[in-house]
Measured scan of single mutants.
Amino acid sequence: QVNIAPGSLDKALNQYAAHSGFTLSVDASLTRGKQSNGLHGDYDVESGLQQLLDGSGLQVKPLGNNSWTLEP
């Protein structure tokens, strides 16, 4: 069960990665100043990332080996 409060997208993504045990490689300029609506409930990694990114204009991309990145 994930419980991440709304706020900074950077912070939300870092909390989610730490909670879910995956690696997220992101260029900080992509997420700077963006906000997230947070995340509450049970999600697989990709669904949770998509939910956190909702409205940010960013997309999640798998890199393999439980690693992910973001792209515009």
Rank of each mutant, 00 (worst) to 15 (best):
Q1P: 13
Q1N: 12
Q1T: 14
Q1E: 12
Q1C: 15
Q1I: 14
Q1A: 13
V2T: 07
N3Q: 10
N3K: 10
N3R: 08
I4E: 01
I4Q: 00
I4T: 01
A5T: 08
A5F: 09
A5Q: 11
A5Y: 08
P6N: 02
P6F: 05
P6I: 05
P6R: 07
G7T: 09
G7A: 07
G7M: 13
G7D: 07
G7H: 05
G7R: 00
G7E: 04
S8A: 12
S8H: 06
S8P: 15
S8Y: 08
L9C: 05
L9H: 02
L9E: 02
L9V: 03
L9D: 00
D10R: 07
D10G: 07
D10Y: 13
D10M: 11
D10L: 12
D10S: 09
D10A: 10
D10P: 03
D10E: 13
K11P: 03
K11E: 15
K11V: 13
K11R: 12
K11H: 13
A12V: 15
A12Q: 04
A12C: 15
A12E: 01
A12R: 03
A12Y: 04
A12L: 09
A12T: 08
L13I: 06
L13T: 01
L13Y: 02
L13G: 00
L13C: 06
N14W: 13
N14T: 13
N14L: 15
N14Y: 13
N14M: 15
Q15A: 13
Q15K: 07
Y16C: 07
Y16A: 00
Y16W: 14
Y16K: 00
A17D: 02
A17S: 07
A17C: 07
A17R: 06
A17F: 03
A17P: 03
A17G: 05
A17M: 11
A17Q: 08
A17I: 08
A18T: 08
A18C: 12
A18P: 01
A18N: 09
A18V: 12
H19D: 09
H19Q: 14
H19R: 06
H19L: 15
H19T: 11
H19W: 14
H19F: 13
S20N: 10
S20R: 14
S20W: 15
S20F: 15
S20L: 15
G21C: 10
G21R: 07
G21N: 09
F22Y: 02
F22D: 02
F22P: 04
F22I: 15
F22E: 02
F22G: 02
T23P: 02
T23K: 11
T23I: 11
T23A: 08
L24E: 02
L24F: 10
L24Y: 10
L24S: 03
L24A: 03
L24I: 13
S25V: 15
S25R: 12
S25E: 14
S25G: 04
V26Q: 04
V26C: 10
V26D: 05
V26Y: 15
V26G: 08
D27G: 04
D27I: 07
D27E: 09
D27M: 06
D27N: 08
D27K: 07
A28Q: 11
A28C: 14
A28M: 10
S29L: 10
S29P: 02
S29T: 12
S29N: 13
S29E: 14
S29F: 10
S29K: 11
L30N: 04
L30M: 09
L30R: 00
L30V: 08
T31S: 02
T31F: 06
T31E: 06
R32S: 14
R32K: 14
R32Y: 15
G33N: 10
G33M: 04
G33D: 12
G33T: 03
G33V: 02
G33L: 04
G33A: 03
K34R: 07
K34W: 07
K34M: 08
Q35D: 08
Q35W: 15
S36I: 02
S36T: 15
S36L: 02
S36G: 03
S36R: 00
S36D: 01
S36V: 04
N37M: 12
N37H: 10
N37Y: 09
N37E: 08
N37T: 08
N37F: 10
G38T: 03
G38L: 03
G38V: 00
G38I: 02
G38H: 04
G38A: 02
G38W: 05
L39E: 01
L39Y: 01
L39K: 03
H40G: 03
H40Y: 14
H40T: 12
H40E: 10
G41C: 05
G41H: 03
G41E: 02
D42K: 13
D42V: 14
D42N: 13
D42C: 15
D42W: 15
D42I: 14
D42G: 07
D42E: 12
Y43F: 11
Y43T: 05
D44C: 08
D44A: 07
D44H: 06
D44M: 06
D44T: 13
V45Y: 07
V45L: 07
V45Q: 06
V45K: 03
V45S: 04
E46P: 09
E46A: 11
E46Y: 15
E46N: 07
E46R: 11
E46I: 14
S47F: 08
S47H: 10
S47P: 04
S47V: 09
G48M: 04
G48Y: 04
G48L: 05
G48F: 05
L49W: 05
L49S: 00
L49Y: 00
L49E: 00
Q50P: 00
Q50H: 10
Q50A: 13
Q50C: 12
Q51D: 05
Q51Y: 09
Q51R: 12
Q51S: 08
Q51P: 01
Q51N: 06
Q51G: 05
Q51A: 14
L52N: 00
L52T: 00
L52E: 01
L52I: 09
L52P: 00
L52D: 00
L53H: 00
L53Y: 00
L53C: 08
L53G: 01
L53F: 03
L53M: 04
L53K: 00
L53E: 00
D54F: 14
D54H: 14
G55Y: 04
G55E: 04
G55H: 05
S56G: 03
S56N: 02
S56R: 00
S56Q: 06
G57K: 05
G57R: 04
G57S: 04
L58G: 03
Q59M: 13
Q59K: 14
Q59I: 14
V60A: 15
V60I: 12
V60W: 08
V60L: 12
V60Y: 10
K61I: 13
K61N: 05
K61L: 08
K61D: 00
P62R: 14
P62H: 14
P62N: 13
P62D: 10
P62E: 08
L63A: 08
L63R: 03
L63S: 08
L63G: 07
G64L: 04
G64P: 06
G64I: 03
G64H: 05
G64T: 05
G64N: 06
N65T: 08
N65I: 09
N65M: 09
N65H: 10
N65W: 08
N65V: 09
N66C: 08
N66M: 07
N66W: 04
N66H: 07
S67C: 11
S67P: 00
S67W: 11
S67L: 12
W68S: 02
W68R: 00
W68C: 05
W68G: 02
W68D: 01
T69E: 08
T69Q: 10
T69H: 07
T69M: 11
L70H: 02
L70C: 09
L70V: 14
L70M: 05
E71V: 15
E71Q: 10
E71Y: 10
E71C: 10
E71L: 12
P72E: 10
P72L: 13
P72T: 09
P72W: 10
P72S: 09
P72Q: 10
